[in-house]
């Protein structure tokens, strides 16, 4: 089943200007361009004439023009041959396109899916709702299942990351809880925040506890992380809380694009600094994702089957997420049957 029955984020809006841009979702490529009204449009990146990539073309008065023989296409995919204007059946597949949260999202033309509102509830009445800080994509040179595995556990935190989370001497004092549902996985980690210069920016104190709670859903694959810091003596939550939905968009069989949207709740005195803070929070989120992207090629050949792996308690969400990925996203019943067979041998002891 085509994964584009769901809306996927594919490109920051500001990255689409006068030239067409190629994006790829699950090995299907699309040419994005802006029509004469400035609306973002997406069509299959293959001219029906001789299959030239339309993204290599240009935009002329809101029409996408093929670089090879000048065929032109509107945002609905209606095509016309330059040299044979009466030629029939020149259309190309077009997509539903929505611009929201500073991003371009695409889905199949007949999709009934909607782009999420990201209307996050405030943690406390005084903190106010989470406000948008920024969004960015980062490519991971690894298949979707490898990237999703990485973002299904925090056990790697002290080894792959250097700012948020705990350091290696605290690995045995991690608080962890995971709940598996039919449509999602919910995970909680807490551990002492490592000493970091980030602490000064975020108003943290030495000894504060880092809390990371997340929910992973598969319509399409997206994990929403909620990060906060708590004073262990008073249980008071520090004023800055970060919420980050991360979309895992398979590009090809060997690459995945992560599109991260960063929101922050800022209790006083941070609220008044929000215009400045939003840039800092976005940069730090970018740095964290970049850390993962640098490491992931090291494990890019991890097989789809988990057979033979010596998994521990922190890996339980990975196993469940793999199943949900196959069942809910790829809607692949054969894969589910195989996964059930394969994962039957997994050891997930604590």
């Amino acid at each position: 089943m085509n994964v584009l029955r769901f809306f996927h984020p594919v490109l920051p809006s500001r990255s689409l200007r006068g030239k067409p841009v190629k994006v790829t979702v699950a090995d299907e490529s699309f040419a994005l361009f802006r029509d004469e009204h400035g609306r973002a449009c997406a069509v299959a990146d293959r001219c029906p004439h001789r299959f030239a990539p339309l993204s290599a073309g240009r935009v002329d008065r809101g029409k996408l023009v093929c670089a090879y023989h000048g065929w032109s296409f509107d945002g609905e995919g209606h095509g016309k041959s330059a040299s044979q204007p009466s030629l029939a059946k020149c259309d190309v597949r077009s997509m539903r396109v929505v611009e929201k949260h500073g991003y371009i999202w695409i889905a199949n033309r007949d999709s009934e899916d909607e782009v999420p509102n990201f209307d996050f509830t405030a943690s406390t009445p005084e903190s106010g709702k989470a406000r948008f800080c920024g969004a960015f994509p980062v490519r991971f040179d690894a298949p979707l299942h490898v990237v999703l595995d990485n973002f299904s556990e925090d056990e790697h935190t002290p080894f792959v990351h250097t700012r948020l989370g705990w350091e290696s001497r605290d690995v045995t004092s991690i608080g962890f809880h995971a709940t598996r549902y039919d449509d999602r996985t919910e995970v909680h980690y807490d551990a002492p925040q490592r000493p970091t210069r980030v602490g000064r920016i975020f108003g943290l104190h030495l000894g504060d506890v880092f809390h990371n709670d997340w929910v992973t859903r598969f319509d399409p694959p997206c994990t929403t992380y909620k990060t906060k810091w708590v004073d262990p003596k008073t249980s008071v939550t520090r004023p800055l809380r970060i919420t980050s939905p991360i979309y895992f968009v398979p590009e090809t069989g060997s690459s995945t694009i992560l599109h991260t949207f960063v929101f922050a709740e800022t209790g006083e005195p941070y609220g008044r600094f929000f215009p400045l803070l939003r840039h800092i929070v976005t940069a730090i989120a970018f740095g964290e994702i970049w850390d993962d992207a640098r490491f992931i090629p090291t494990v890019k050949h991890t097989p789809r089957s988990m057979r033979g792996m010596r998994l521990g308690k922190f890996d339980k969400p990975l196993v469940h997420n793999r199943r949900l990925l196959d069942r809910l996203y790829f809607a692949n019943l054969d894969e589910v049957a195989n996964a059930d067979d394969g994962t039957g041998t997994i050891q997930t002891g604590s």
């Binding site: 190629k22 994006v23 490529s29 290599a56 976005t282 940069a283």
Partner: peptide, 21 residues
Amino acid sequence: RAEMTKSVIDLNVKVMALGRT
């Protein structure tokens, strides 16, 4: 600083797009 961070993020998007083409 804010402008440079944004510029580097945008540059990365362009490099990703170039990688695809």
